[in-house]
Structure formats: C-alpha cells, structure tokens
Design a protein around this nucleic acid. Structure first.
Lengths: 233, 233
DNA sequence: TCAAAAGTGTTATGAGTACACCCATGG
DNA sequence: CCATGGGTGTACTCATAACACTTTTGA
C-alpha cells in the first residue's frame, strides 16, 4: 500500500471536559496528571487516540475509565492544534464535552485517577491549554442549552422543577421567575409529572418529573428558546 | 526532551468546505484531486498540517492557495477520525467551512487546481468522507445563519435587499414574505442604506445597503432569529 | 400555628405573521 | 403606457415578561 511520503505524523489526543451539577452549582471533573510534563498538576482527563479507534471511541473509552459510566452525553467540541500547546511533543487535542448525572458518578474509580469535582467558577489553573478548553465548553454549553433541552443530562431520571430551575440559574448565573420558568418548560411537552414528590427539600414537597423521551428526541433539534431574554444569554 | 513513548503518530489534514452564492443558488467549490488515491475524483480542497503551523493556519494557507483570498470567513467545523476514512493511510481530517464572496474569487488560480463551482444541491460524489463533511457544513450553516448575521459573508460589500432575500431563500430552500423580511432585517440595525441603486435587475432599481460594521461585530453573538418560523427550520 | 418552599393566574407589551397595493423606470 | 420588480402599512395572534398570593405540611 502506497503511503503519503514526506508528511509529518503527529500525536493525537482526546481531552474530556466533564460537567456535573450537585444541586447547587455547576461542577467540573479534573484529575491529577499522571504523566510528565506537569505531573501532579490538575488536568482534564485525556488520552492518546489509538491506531484502531476513532476520536469518538477514544473519548468514550477515556470517559468510561474516569467515571465508570457508559452512554453519557458526549459531544465533540473543538480541535486544539497550536504547535506549542504541549511542551513535550507536538500533540493535537480533540476536545469533547460531556454532561453527566453526578449522582451516578462512581467515586471508587475516581480515586484511582485522583479525580475531584471543582466548582466550575473556581477551577484551578490547568495544564497546557486546558483552561481554554473549559472556557470554550462552558460557552458552548450556555449557547446550546438556551436552544435545546440539554441540561436534563445533568439531572437524575426523576427531578423536580425547582431542581431544574436551580440548574438553569447556575448555568446562566442569574435568577429566573419561577412562574414563567415552569410555564415555559411545561409548555414544551418534554416533561411528564410523576405521582410522587421529593420531600427532602421542603415540607410541601415538589412533584417529580421525567422526560418524555419521545418528545425529547423529536424536539431536540428544534429551537426552544428556553432562556428568558431578560435573563442571561 | 522526553517524548511520549509508544504512542502512534498519525497524519493530520485539513479540508475546506467553501461556500459561495452566485445570485441565484448556493455553490460549493471543489477540486479534482491531484494525489493518489482517487486521483482525478472531485474532492474538497485540503492539505496536511505542517510541523510548525496550527490547523487554523493550515486551513488559511490551503484556502488562500485555492481562491487567492485572504481574510475570509473560516471556521472550524469538526474533526473526522474514522480509522478507515482514508484508504491509503490513517489520516485525521480537521474540516473547516468557509464563506466567500464569489465575485472576488480569482478564476486564474482556480484553474491551476482544476477547481469548479457546483450547485450545492447537485454536488457530485466526493472522495472519502467529504460528502459527509459537506452535509455537516450545510447543516451548520443553516443553524448558525438562523441566529447570526453570517450570510453577509457571501455577498459583496454593497448588496440589495432582494439579493439578500434570495440568498436566505437559497440557504433555507423556501420563500419568505418580502415585507416581513425587509422589516426584520432592517430592524436589526445592521444595514445602512446607500444613496445609489442597483439598476441591473429592474427598471426601478434596488437600493444598495452596506453592513454597519460596528453593529455587526456587536450583534454577531446575539440571537437574532433571522428566519421566520413558518419558513424553513 | 408558623415557617419554608411549592405551585399557580392575569395583564400588558412586543414580536411575528399574513396579507395587497402603489411606485419608479426603461422600453 | 405598460410591464417588471421594488418598496411599504395594518391588523391579528401569540409569546413573553412582570408581578403576588394561596397551598401544603412538618416541626
């Protein structure tokens, strides 16, 4: 088989920006880097693309290793290619961002990787260009979640409207009117009210909802305009 | 300098999806591939990422070589990484999409590359996964142009409202009401009416407009909702 | 009975849409 | 004077946003 002669081959890595929500604030999952350079510094979870896997497969593999989770929301974000981004050797990085239900995260596995959740707005300095990746992921999350029902990926299967509103308020760093918020969300037809309530956060209790998965798939690509114009953008 | 041992290095290419608008329909710029495999087949313009350039720089270089243009709209689209996407040797491709004013395109240079404009809706079969890249670029263009004033990149500096409307109708493959269209576009504050008219398309003539570049930059990131709900989506 | 959070209804404003006629000009 | 495309105004509907009180229940 003829090869492309005289072209330089490069290392290709994937890096995963993993977002979670703890009920109060947005969180970011970081690990302490195991390799030189910058061993011990905080870093996104990453790994090299192997010869027989695509970047998507590599990202899934890495994410499963970090969280023990499969089938999570994972989307290619951007490829970072500054020739000097990794001081050891030129490495392309294909960044992915992921949304996980933090309550399903398996702490056991994380300790193997010295992983930790950080408040998104108080994340430490990361290696290489990882802070830039996080900033881009945050922006994309805000952008996309304003138009598509994305943030449900961060919640358990059963969730309450107050939880959902707190999540939106965390992502957009603002407050919404709860009457308008619930009317808008319910009008999407995405939510199905359950018979039971979450009694843990109030005396009255808040009804649980689940996603209507049929409508969820159908409407995901629509523009839903989930964020009030007077709120964040 | 320590290197990352035992990791496989891969070829990294960029491929550019170049869109234009000829006044009637959306067009796609393709070349006849000069390399094996598939020499002579239609292809996107691409090239390998060189050791000391980023992917953005590579895409700019490639695009300049193809069109003679500099400073054109160019945005990273997606990285394609199927291990089998190039039958000769595994190659990652970082795809970019670009919008150019077709009237500035320099035919001389294009002939050097056997480049040709194709009607976007009648593009030929392309090599490798390039049809998939084009499909994704088309979708992203529709998505983004519904919310941001992007399509102006396809027009000359001076353009008329009927031209602009034809362009939008081409991208969304539908017809808009011209009264609503002009009201909506003018209400953005992005357009500045010129004193002169384009007399080439009608007896009455249509006023030229230019972009208000200050508002253009300021509003680019806003959600403008440029497409009627009853139109395409 | 009280505290704390959940849940809900009304009104006013503005954006979006549907729709039809007059204008300017060159031939 | 007429054919062709350019340009504009109005009324209706619906989505949005602002705003405050009642309900539930455990302590």
């Amino acid at each position: 088989m003829t090869k492309y002669q005289k072209q330089t081959r490069l290392l290709a890595a994937v890096d995963c920006i993993v977002f979670g929500f703890d009920g109060h604030t947005m969180r970011l999952l970081l690990i302490q880097r195991a390799l030189e350079a910058e061993r011990g510094k905080w870093s996104l979870m990453g790994g090299f693309v192997q010869p027989h896997e695509s970047a998507d497969e590599a990202a899934k593999r890495v994410l499963h290793a970090l969280t023990g989770l499969q089938g999570v929301y994972l989307e290619q974000l951007h490829t970072f290619s500054d020739p000097a981004r990794d001081p050891i050797e030129r490495t392309l990085s294909i960044a992915y961002f992921s949304l996980i239900d933090i309550s399903q995260y398996e702490k056991q596995l994380s300790e193997e990787y010295h992983a930790e959740w950080f408040d998104l707005s108080a994340a430490p300095r990361l290696i290489f260009d990882h802070n830039e990746m996080v900033a881009m992921a945050k922006e994309k999350l805000r952008y996309k979640a304003a138009l598509h029902p994305l943030l449900f990926e961060l919640l358990p299967k059963k969730f309450t409207l107050p939880q959902l509103q707190t999540l939106f308020e965390g992502v957009y760093e603002t407050k919404f009117d709860k009457r308008n918020f619930s009317r808008k969300l319910l009008s999407t037809g995405l939510l199905v009210r359950q018979a039971d309530k979450d009694m843990s956060a109030s005396r009255k209790g808040a009804f649980y909802y689940k996603l209507n998965s049929k409508n969820y798939k159908a409407k995901f690509q629509d523009f839903l305009n989930l964020i009030p114009r007077t709120g964040a953008r």
